[in-house]
Design a protein around this nucleic acid. Structure first.
Length: 216
DNA sequence: GAATCGATGGTCT
DNA sequence: GACCATCGATTCT
């Protein structure tokens, strides 16, 4: 297999919505004991600055949110509900707290180990949620503040479409945006369409938001 | 399919 | 002591 190109600092050092949109289709890679575990990113959410009440950094710099105020391309991993971890990638310039939460993957490499880490749940439920994908890839708080541009254990590889050498492997027609899942805050935080997903992917955490289920 | 609820511990007031 | 960017089981329609 050819060596894939990794996403560089400049990719992350942009407007958070742009980064979120273009993370769709890219490949998240985790190396465990020399083994590759990876998945295609199919769902993300943007958390942007102190004006965003749903953003952990809304209340300013604390020990926990410190990474979000740092340079782009670093991992922000937090522990929640006493049992789950969630993975973000820091975006924008140093000093401006923002990040993209990785919410779901389509499993690509290392399925046997992922199944083991996920107690043999069905393949379409291995990584279809932010807590689940961290469990499947063995991502914990120990990886908080890792530089994903330089790390040998956690990084994102560029997926280029063979035919068209566009920046994104996912065309606009395949992308859907919705409000973010399970956030608290003011009206703006609850309604702003900062969740991005690949419409037809069966590996997203949910298909629509409090929406009527279209039934086929 | 949708709504409800318990588990469980770090973070911040 | 309240809150929580979740998950999975249970209990409904």
């Amino acid at each position: 297999m050819a060596n894939r190109e990794r996403l560089q600092r400049a990719f992350y050092a942009r407007d958070t919505l742009t980064v979120a949109r273009h993370l769709l289709g890219q490949r998240l890679v985790r190396i465990v004991n020399g083994q590759r575990l990876s998945g295609r990113i199919v769902e993300v959410e943007a958390y942007i600055g102190q004006g965003d009440q749903a953003c952990h950094a809304a209340r300013g710099l604390t020990p926990r949110t410190k990474v979000m105020f740092g340079p782009p391309g670093f991992a922000y991993v937090y522990f929640i509900y006493g049992m789950h971890h969630c993975l973000n990638v820091v975006t924008e310039r140093e000093g401006f707290p923002a990040a993209v939460l990785i919410r779901a993957l389509e499993p690509l490499e290392g399925l046997p180990l992922m199944r083991h880490l996920r107690q043999n749940r069905p393949d379409d439920k291995l990584t279809n949620g932010p807590g689940k994908l961290c469990q499947a890839l063995g991502i914990t708080r120990e990886m908080n503040s890792i530089d994903m541009v330089r790390s040998d254990v956690l990084f994102i590889e560029k997926e280029t479409e063979k035919e068209t050498e566009k920046e994104t492997p996912v065309p606009d027609e395949a992308v859907q945006t919705t409000p973010r899942i399970n956030v608290r805050g003011d009206e703006r935080a609850l309604t702003v369409p900062w969740r991005f997903l690949i419409k037809e992917s069966p590996f997203c955490s949910r298909r629509s938001v409090t929406g009527k289920a279209e039934h086929p």
